[in-house]
Design a protein around this nucleic acid. Structure first.
Lengths: 352, 352
DNA sequence: AAGTTGCATGTAATCGATTACATAGGGTTG
DNA sequence: CAACCCTATGTAATCGATTACATGCAACTT
């Protein structure tokens, strides 16, 4: 069996030890393969003695069921696809960890598909769902759904359970895990107003983003609640990235009358914006207050530290994973789960 | 077969359209399943006419090979495991994207395993490799390897191809993709010295981290190159996190004689450190210069913007994935790939 | 013309687990 | 004691693709 002798057809020169199969376990435990399978899947359906022998044999052989075989027969993959718009966005990482740990505990693996640009996204999603490579998917991105409905060319196999995380999908009848973006945005707006700010700018997310719409509604709601007028000139377009924040900052710097406070709908934008203001010689919060959204790691160490909305990211991930697991295992899942946010007050916002 | 009528065994009441199998394609194209399989895997081994008919039938049915079946037969999963110490660390995200895109192009999927704490790590790695759920793995974490060698209990199936990314694994005979940490650290050290700094502090990574060792060697090398003495009092322990940077900052602030420059071996630490210095009333770079390592997104928008070492993160990921794919497909792969770094000069470092 | 070679294709075994169905034996009931 | 039921277990079909081997046919060699 080694690079020396082996005249008699030994294992191909593969050093790897052949993994134990269910048959090996069955033989060792002196039962049939059916019993081994049952001992694992439905312990109560085999006698205690047989089960003991099986478990012992499994321990001895180090048997692990072959997922391909199991999957082929049972039509389940024990894999979940996580679709997200941008892996390098800090915001998602803790969410992912929450998802991963919950999935892992339930015996599921996680496949990540980073959409990044438009073109591939459909491809990725289709490739995995269509091929039956995953049992379900968690979507951290709302847009994608529209297209996937029964286009002729693509396989009509989109029937796998889905869960939407953070980005609600409009007409879709799937569980949505989210925070109350509207309430949070309203809260922040009122917080700013309470400190005496009258001209509050708003740096938005991507235009047709559902999350953005909610936050925008919340912003307007907040203004209304404190009796401030809504001024379209104070809306600055953004897309949650650092660069968008930088650009928004340039816009502000160039203005003759500036707002006294800026509410950025992501911490990245707030940090980019503060950077630009600073370069232009404006001081935060003395000259202008800046608030963020998300409470990413860097929010606390930004200079000045960022007042923002804390989202329970890990918990969001866990909740999404749990909801999906419920669906996958035939249980029902609440249609909508809302986790609480928290207003985190730091140094980037001051009273007028 | 069902509680209602349907006498002639209709499809079970599953709305999902049954995915096309190779048999359906074969029937439609009027060939055998073997020919269909060959038309896909070895196009040159079937006649052009047959191939055309097969392709047409595939287009018509929307056939996608069932990965479980393929995997069962061919003993390949077309999945790669990526093991990393901390998903929420900004540094990894772009690397992941590089890995993912390269894998995807080659038809491989990516499974991510975030080690986070110690206990699970072995579990995750073992669970996936042992079960044959993946064909290979990319390790972004060096430690793990020691344990996995032939422990009695665990399945001896660690024979899958591995690639080490960024964290070289000492004795292991596997391809290593990395940057020249030593040269980069030396370069930065000399850069600081050239600007007149004589007392340069060094904020380290985790003690037994290989990457850290290289950078530390580079630091000492750099000192030597410019004729500066090595002063152990100027070494401050860290672990690459923001918090470690904050702590290092507190340490510095408390000192009576302070270094004029600090070389942090990660941008996170540099940013945390600057934050603390600032809070203590010290100005960067006027009172003290700060340099980082990695060039993460936030480095450019920190205040002041951070002088650091740029690592080609996406390319690192791509290189690692390519190397692994080479191995998986039986080609050989260079044992060591080194990508170039770049010294990025910004505002956090000034001449004395 | 008989033998050889090689290509295109088909037939069927195979991968390893799950599970419908069959069966044997022990216990219960009238 | 016969009829029945229930439990524990075994037998073998099955999931869908890959691929070793077999076959048929055409072209070429001597």
């Amino acid at each position: 069996m080694d690079e020396l002798g082996h005249k008699d057809r030994a294992e191909p020169e593969d050093t790897r030890i052949r993994a134990a199969r269910i048959q090996d376990v069955a033989r060792l435990a002196d039962v049939s393969t059916a019993t081994v399978s049952r001992a694992l899947a439905n312990p109560e359906r085999v006698s205690p003695e047989a089960r003991a022998r099986v478990l012992e044999a499994i321990a001895k052989t180090g048997y692990v069921p072959n997922p391909a075989a199991r999957s082929l027969r049972s039509q389940k993959t024990f894999m979940v696809l996580v679709v997200l718009p941008d892996l390098s966005n800090t915001f998602f990482s803790k969410i992912l960890r929450g998802i991963e740990e919950t999935l892992f505990e339930a015996g599921y693996g996680m496949i990540i598909s980073d959409l990044d640009g438009s073109p591939e996204k459909e491809a990725h999603f289709a490739a995995f769902t269509a091929a039956g490579r995953v049992d379900g998917a968690i979507l951290l991105n709302g847009h994608l759904f529209g297209q996937s409905r029964g286009g002729e060319g693509q396989p009509a196999r989109i029937g796998i359970p889905l869960v939407a995380l953070c980005e609600a999908i409009p007409g879709a009848d799937i569980p949505q895990i989210e925070i109350d973006n509207r309430a949070a945005a309203s809260r922040m707006t009122q917080h700013l107003a309470t400190l005496g700010h009258r001209r509050i700018a708003y740096v938005s997310g991507p235009a047709n983003n559902i999350l953005e719409r909610e936050r925008f509604l919340g912003f307007k709601e907040g203004l209304e609640a404190v009796g401030l007028p809504f001024d379209p000139a104070l809306i600055i377009p953004g897309d949650y990235t650092i660069e968008a924040g930088v650009r928004a900052g340039q816009d502000l710097v160039a203005r003759s009358t500036r707002p006294t406070a800026v509410f950025c709908t992501s911490d990245e934008m707030a940090i980019g914006l503060m950077r630009t203001l600073f370069s232009a010689g404006l001081k935060v919060p003395d000259d202008i207050s800046v608030a963020g959204f998300d409470d990413i790691e860097f929010a606390a160490v930004a200079e000045p530290s960022l007042t923002t909305i804390h989202q329970p990211r890990r918990e969001l991930g866990q909740a999404a994973a749990s909801a999906l697991i419920d669906l996958l295992q035939g249980r029902s899942s609440p249609k909508r789960i809302r986790l609480d946010t928290e207003l985190v007050i730091r140094d980037s916002v001051a009273s007028l």
